[in-house]
Amino acid sequence: MCDTCGCNITEGNRHLVEEGGKHAHSEDGSVAVEVLQNLLSENDHQAAHNREHFDRHQLLAVNLMSSPGSGKTRLLETTIDRLKARYRIAVVEGDLETENDAERIREKGVEAVQITTGTACHLDAHMIHNALHRMDLDQVDILFIENVGNLVCPASFDLGQHLNITLLSVTEGDDKPSKYPVIFRAADLVLITKSDLLAVMDEFSPERAEQAVRQLAVEVPVTQTSAKSGEGFETWLDWLEEQIELQKARRSQGETRTPKLQPEGAKLHAGEG
């Protein structure tokens, strides 16, 4: 009750007000409050809510991240062509401006919601939540989220997805994983795209690209694909279908999945907080 004479300090709370304690007062009268909370906890809270929403609708949510122009939309177009007879697919498109990508997806006969972020360089969990209000998820088996083309910022924001895929096109250089480690460490699958161009891009070595991924302590599959020639597409589709089955199995156990890094990080930091 009394902060003046200290009569409210008991054996039970003394450690809080002593130097270094949670409510320690410094000489100038300021109060230090220990927090140890993730800076993005508000986003993470919304992301968890989105994930529950996806799980309730029994769908698999997949987040695609890459540089602009590395073939995310093209990958989705071919994937839709190949899978739409067997699975109900929907897409959330993220870009700074235009409906162009959503229109490309709609031409394939699939529902697409475009998020235009204006100046924001990434999607966040709140933007996804708003987009979900514009979709009928009862009609969806796989929801692809195509993040804003950017190899930096999207890696920091959980959207509620179950899986992250990081794309690396052969025109970008095989050392990209070394230059942008955060986004490649977040991947559950690394897709080397536009592999039909390897014949003319002799400076890109898929082996060196994979080596650069391994140097980040990343064990996930690294697969080559070409949405144009169809090369490597079976491997990618097999992986995706396996993930759909794994998600169904998790749902039947009442479980879910967060992208690779978050459980590891949360567990290791729990000791501090």
Partner: peptide
């Protein structure tokens, strides 16, 4: 990979 709000000092 920390991104933590560690503490705040308040008046």
């Amino acid at each position: 990979d920390e991104l933590l709000l560690a503490s705040v000092e308040l008046i």
